[in-house]
Design a protein around this nucleic acid. Structure first.
Length: 194
DNA sequence: CATATGATTGAA
DNA sequence: TCAATCATATGC
């Protein structure tokens, strides 16, 4: 098991979404390490994607990191929840991959503490849930997945799994881009959201 | 400075 | 189905 290199992230969001499936998302905190296998992702294709924050190259303090180096951490606050993304493509191409669900691997006791009273299946089966379970927060914004405390490792999951695609979720009011099959997940995995 | 608006979740 | 509740964006 080893951290993925910079070169792994240098691809567009669609390719990266697929490549991230089966990888291990690792977060180190003072309390210990929590990690999970990425089982569901969504691609946000930057300037041409109606549903992306960076549609039409909209560049603000919030989206700034999407214009940065691939493999950067983009955290985003939605209502009371934090969502986490992996920045894709080259500098000035504002694409990103939203991590929607993971399967718990290490630090199960930490996740249980952070998601009190929930069944294990509900710890990480949604974008706002996994950030809470792993301890990912807005102070991870602008970090990079090749350095601690938030990293992505290779070589953990089993090799043979089937990838399925479908329309994205939660963007019904965003018009034309909503039906694009830019959501990816591992077939049959029970930690998929919705 | 005020208000509108979600890449969601959890409970009714 | 709907409200919670907040950072960001945009308008006055």
């Amino acid at each position: 098991m080893k951290p993925l290199k910079q070169s792994f992230y240098d691809k567009d969001a669609l390719e990266l979404s697929e490549a991230l499936l089966g990888k291990l998302l690792v977060k180190d905190t003072p309390e210990g390490r929590a990690s999970g296998i990425i089982v569901e992702t969504e691609a946000y294709m930057g300037a041409e994607d109606r549903a992306a924050h960076s549609y039409g190259n909209r560049r603000t303090r919030r989206t700034e990191i999407m214009f940065g180096k691939a493999g950067s951490v983009y955290t985003y606050q939605m209502h009371t929840h934090t969502l986490v993304n992996v920045v894709a493509a080259e500098v000035d191409t504002p694409q990103a991959v939203l991590i929607r669900a993971v399967e718990p691997v290490e630090g199960l006791h930490l996740m249980e503490e952070r998601r009190p009273g929930r069944k294990q299946i509900e710890w990480t089966n949604g974008p706002g849930k996994l950030t809470k379970a792993l301890g990912i927060a807005m102070n991870d914004y602008g970090s990079h997945y090749t350095v601690p405390p938030l990293q992505i490792f290779d070589g953990w999951a089993q090799k043979d799994f089937e990838i399925v695609t479908g329309p994205r979720i939660g963007i019904d009011n965003t018009g034309e881009a909503r039906d694009y099959p830019w959501r990816f997940w591992i077939k049959g995995n029970s930690y998929i959201s919705r």
